[in-house]
Design a protein around this nucleic acid. Structure first.
Lengths: 168, 168
DNA sequence: GTCTGGTTGTTCGAATTGGAACGACCATCG
DNA sequence: CGATGGTCGTTCCAATTCGAACAACCAGAC
């Protein structure tokens, strides 16, 4: 490691734009959700993933991996959602360790009530601002970056375990 | 508002890539900083901004605006940094309300020790993964999105006040 | 002057986060 | 079977986050 390669002006601009846009956007989305349906951004994401899962449920570990949140953090949030009746938990019969979190009908109803506003905001504040080329570049470039980081490349993260079959 | 315009597959891919890459990346950077110099990502950002400011100091409000963090959150972190001797605070003589936070020599030293590893990680994990075109698209597209959100467009945020002259 | 409206940074309390430690569990080997 | 190593989700605790309320302050109208 001779001397450090600093960021060029262009690189710095891109990097700042990336973090700045994310912070600004996430803040808006969070507030919007909180106001409209009382959910946090993370809670919305949890419900969204569950609603899209095969049988409307997922393993805790899989969820945590998808959301890039710590296990303990997920436990906490799922507990909140369960208290609110939006999610139900059941333990897997074939693997006593595993816990499945599934979205309830009530959760689906709330999600459907939350989605329009949320999606509209994402479109207005990000998607519609980008040209089709920029959108594509974003999907390609950041998709690749995400993929590389997800595979333990360069650091921790040994996961990518079993693909979570419906269990029974 | 007729019916909601949902996200197309491409749009969804881009959106997911964006949030996913950010989460993954920020987590790595955070851990890296914590291990190498004991700073959090936010603390590093604070020091970095201060080090680049005209006289190595900024108003609290300006800092908070740049970092997109709540005022109270910034107060907390700056207090931490001050306790560690990396930052010093002084109140402005011409405007008794304002508080300037400035980075100390000790802070500069730590920042210089932290920067190489941090910057290298940013390059390796993000910049170097992108093609020049993608980098440019990211800077342009997300830059524009950030700019629009920063101007109260569509929502709260009335700020963008005085440009914080050196005060004396 | 004095009043009013808006700004600034801090304080407070409640909610959330994340890591480490833990107990329960599976799978493999002998 | 008994032991071992690894996985899973939870619990615990300290650190952090955010918004609302607050006190001090500035600026302009009157």
């Amino acid at each position: 490691m001779g001397h450090t390669r600093w960021l060029s002006d262009d690189e710095m601009r891109a990097w700042r734009a990336f973090t700045n846009a994310h912070a600004l956007l996430y803040r808006r989305l969070d507030h919007g959700l909180k106001e409209e349906v009382g959910l946090s951004g993370l809670q919305y994401e949890i419900l969204a993933r569950l609603s899209g899962a095969p049988s409307r449920e997922m393993r805790m570990a899989e969820l945590a991996g998808d959301l890039v949140n710590s296990k303990s953090g997920l436990t906490y949030q799922v507990a909140q959602l369960e208290k609110a009746g939006l999610v139900r938990r059941r333990s897997c019969t074939s693997d006593e360790r595993a816990v499945f979190a599934g979205i309830t009908d009530e959760g689906m109803a709330l999600l459907e009530r939350a989605a329009p506003g949320h999606v509209t905001r994402v479109k207005e504040l990000l998607i519609d601002v980008l040209t089709p080329d920029q959108l594509q570049a974003l999907a390609d470039g950041l998709g690749e970056a995400g993929r590389r980081m997800a595979d333990g490349a360069g650091c921790s993260r040994p996961d990518r375990a079993t693909e979570a079959e419906p269990c029974e």
